[in-house]
């Protein structure tokens, strides 16, 4: 084995690959929980590690050791595979997003389309998870997730396309490079697209006001009602990775991604930016009530789709590029 292959394997497995991303996922879950708790005048995680920073990891490990129950009526194969896919898909997408430098681990022209594709697959996984567990609550949750996707998929894609048009490339790394070389962040050029992206990310991650597929008081835990033990641990990991993915995508597409500023390495700027985005998500999820599914879908089509289209038109007209 040459040193080069060894380095690549190290990159994929440790930094900025899987291990680093897992750590980041747990860190951001902690940030999110802590900020939400602070807003609500609570402490949040407190005792596991300094200020409870290890709590998400502890939860994960605890769930791994718990009994894994598969319902009798469930479709065993789909039921087992759904959590695996749910955790793996955002991880795959994260390899495409630049984390430690301007270039991502894997990059090719059109990888933005691939990210869109995987995010659609995620919702499909959710639907399959709900469908395969054959519980009434799971079924309703899965159907709601699919319905919700119909609402936010179009605006989020349009919001992703905006920076791509401006940069003239469908590769996330190229979009980051374009922002850094032209010394402007897309968020200042396309604020509407940024707002649309934030709202749709909330929906994608099933945060309040769009936590409709897992609305606790309505349908217990929605599509994840029947999952337990290892599978639930994977689902939680997948959700944390999704949070990292959403914040990383926002950072790359709108906030110029990992930047070398003076002596600060790019990965630190990346983490500062993503942490800011996570903070914003936590603040937003704290100050709303949950929408109803029909209100959500019609609201998305009434307001967000036209806004996203308007943004694209503005870019075509030369404003915001």
């Amino acid at each position: 084995m040459t040193t080069e292959t060894f380095l690549i394997i190290l990159q994929i497995l440790v930094f900025p690959g899987a291990f680093f991303l897992f750590a980041l996922a747990f860190l951001y879950e902690w940030v999110d929980r802590k900020v939400l708790a602070r807003i609500q005048s609570r402490y949040g995680p407190l005792y596991t590690g300094p200020s409870g920073i290890l709590q998400p990891l502890a939860d994960f490990l605890k769930l791994l050791s718990k009994e894994d129950i598969v319902p009798m009526a469930a479709d065993k194969i789909l039921f087992t595979l759904a959590p695996v896919f749910y955790a793996v898909l955002p991880l795959t997408s994260l390899f495409i997003v630049p984390v430690a430098s301007q270039k991502s681990l894997v990059m090719f022209e059109g990888d933005l389309i691939f990210v869109m594709f995987t995010s659609a697959l995620m919702i499909l996984t959710v639907f399959i998870a709900g469908y395969s567990s054959t519980s009434r609550f799971s079924l309703i949750g899965g159907v709601r997730a699919a319905l919700q996707m119909i609402g936010f998929e179009i605006p989020i894609s349009l919001a992703m396309i905006g920076p791509a048009i401006a940069a003239g490339s469908l590769s996330i790394s190229n979009i980051v490079q374009w922002q850094q070389t032209s010394l402007q962040w897309t968020v200042w050029l396309q604020p509407i697209g940024f707002a649309v992206f934030v709202v749709c990310s909330l929906a994608e991650m099933e945060f309040v006001p769009f936590d409709i597929p897992e609305a606790e008081t309505e349908i217990v835990a929605g599509w994840r009602t029947e999952f337990s033990g290892r599978k639930l641990a994977l689902l939680r990991l997948g959700r944390d990775l999704e949070l990292v993915l959403a914040s990383a995508l926002l950072t790359s597409l709108y906030l110029a991604g990992p930047q070398q500023v003076w002596l600060i390495p790019p990965v630190v700027t990346f983490m500062i930016k993503t942490a800011f985005v996570v903070l914003m998500f936590s603040l937003l999820r704290a100050i709303f009530a949950r929408f109803r599914i029909d209100q959500m879908v019609s609201g998305m089509w009434k307001y967000l789709v036209p806004l996203a289209i308007l943004q694209v038109i503005l870019i075509q007209l030369g404003i915001g590029r």
């Binding site: 807003i39 609500q40 005048s41 609570r42 309040v208 006001p209 936590d211 609305a215 606790e216 008081t217 704290a286 100050i287 709303f288 009530a289 949950r290």
Partner: peptide, 16 residues
């Protein structure tokens, strides 16, 4: 009521 519609922050404030 706030909790039932997913508004947990209001729930915490009122109870506080």
């Amino acid at each position: 009521a706030a909790h039932e519609i997913g508004f947990d922050t209001l729930f915490m404030y009122v109870w506080r």
